[in-house]
Design a protein around this nucleic acid. Sequence first.
DNA 1: TCCGAATGCTAATTCGCATTAGCGCCCTTG
DNA 2: CAAGGGCGCTAATGCGAATTAGCATTCGGA
Lengths: 339, 339
Amino acid sequence: MSDAASRRITQRDIAKLAGVSQTTVSLVLNNRSSEETRIPPETRDRVLSVIRETGYVADPVARRLVDRHNRILGVFTYEPVFPSATADFYHPFLVGIEECAERLGCDLLLLTSVPVIDGRRRIYHEANRLRLADGCILLGRSLDRDELARLVSENFPFVSVGRRDDAGGPVPYVGADYGPAVRALVERARALGHTRLAYLGHGEGAESLADRMSGFLEAAGDLPVRHVRPTAGGPAELLDALEGVTAVFAEEYADAVAIADEALGRGVSLPADLSIVTLGDPTRPAPTDIDFTGFRIPRREMGRQAVQVLTGLLEGGPLVQRLLPCEPVEGSTLSGPAT
Amino acid sequence: MSDAASRRITQRDIAKLAGVSQTTVSLVLNNRSSEETRIPPETRDRVLSVIRETGYVADPVARRLVDRHNRILGVFTYEPVFPSATADFYHPFLVGIEECAERLGCDLLLLTSVPVIDGRRRIYHEANRLRLADGCILLGRSLDRDELARLVSENFPFVSVGRRDDAGGPVPYVGADYGPAVRALVERARALGHTRLAYLGHGEGAESLADRMSGFLEAAGDLPVRHVRPTAGGPAELLDALEGVTAVFAEEYADAVAIADEALGRGVSLPADLSIVTLGDPTRPAPTDIDFTGFRIPRREMGRQAVQVLTGLLEGGPLVQRLLPCEPVEGSTLSGPAT
DNA sequence: TCCGAATGCTAATTCGCATTAGCGCCCTTG
DNA sequence: CAAGGGCGCTAATGCGAATTAGCATTCGGA
């Protein structure tokens, strides 16, 4: 390509054109006329006009090399964002992140180049681009423990979206407060007279799942509870496994839809014969007309606040761990059990 | 903060630890044992093991300073992505862009920090961050002509998503082929017997609007057409302005929804009394249960191909201008006119 | 008239990495 | 034993901007 022709214009070029030194150009650019170094208006104007004519802008890369920060925030998504299945789930987080970054005058570096190793994305690899940013926001249901620990130990500024257990030290996060949200739903079910409850989901593996499960168990108290894992088996098997249960709490929205459809297909009436409660937004597309009772994850707000916490960190602020309340969704799939 | 403690580890540090020079570390890192410079396995292993122990990774910033490119693609969105109104419209483009960037091992820099001046975002301003990326993808309904011209004249590698008129030179783009898509719909309407057609929209201002309009006019031929601009005035006024028309082609999905609702409210039956055709996806949220006849903009594919074209450019490839076909949507709002 | 201070600028260095040129060592060979 | 040549490494330099230290001027005051 036109190497010479399209070479970036540099401060040296400006300097030559204005008949001054590169230093002066830099000084003018940064408005740094202190006691020690002052530039008379004439010179300053001359330089400025050359800059205007040429349309020069400082190379952010070189700048960054010198002052070690560049107002770029990295965004790392653990689960691949494609196919768009999960994209819809992650989008609101990104919207919140972007919104706040915009307000703060930061750009976002989407670390999309991260290679997938052993079925998951890895931050650390030979061409690690993370440090191009001042700090980083980590997104994903389950983050790699070792990588998290390494980030912590290297003292790299980052914030996780979603609560994380300690990883060789406390992990900064902005998460959703699943515990109270789930408890409230379970308590409501109990108040309505349900005594045969089931938890449909893994309930472990990721903090967000464990938090739901523990909220469920707490509120269930000494009530017998059934734990149905949506591993193999289709909707039919799942529904079979729920025989006798009057209220089921579904970790995954899609699972709720699946068993609801299956139940309706069998002539079971909802919620009279079976109450179904969802514990969050769909992470997979799950088309349905049913208005499920449950709660919404404050995704956008989580994104927003994650950015705030991160920039706070960058400015030497404290390590923050914050949980945001989930918004209840009234819905129509929870009622008293048929007597 | 812990300046000294948390200072990045550099090649020099590695060099000291391994008892070699910084040069050697760099050579080992880049596998550059040529005829001239070769590293015996012992030394290489020693260096590598230090690198492994320390977890060193090269600073992408410094690297970029040297080789003048960094596999980062800038993404510049003209319209602010917030509030999420427009976000939903732009999301698919981003998904396509991200998908392709991932495949190519590129990261994406979302230029969110761009200031809004005179009601619109501007690329060129004092803190222009554009050049941090190797090249850039421009997104937005209407791009600023002057800025576009400047990008062209500066020979900065970029690709527009959406067709653009020349701006002091041809503009590389991947756009939607509105002309044929609109023509096909108009022709279908004519074949069904419609003779009183209307175009609801601006039909100018942005290339994408002008393209729709000209497709409309071409296919309308010598038929009288009415042009209704959705400026001031609510749905009622718009519908009034359509008196006597049997088929209306709406530039904006939301406008189609508005007049449809208004028409239904007045007891007009759709499509018997009035056929309504949409010319693209909703750019604003427009909730409706109506299954409009029209077409879909291949947004995701446009994003994907924009990335391909951009990386092509970066590798010295040709300037590409490409239009992708829009996918027809059968829908149920176009039928023969009531006789 | 001469010294010291204020003024207006620049040379030199730094950031972390890549790369070119070339230095010193050892081993061969005539 | 000296010359020649391969081997293994390093010094030096550049990328573009920021910054520190300090060099020339001019000017004011005694």
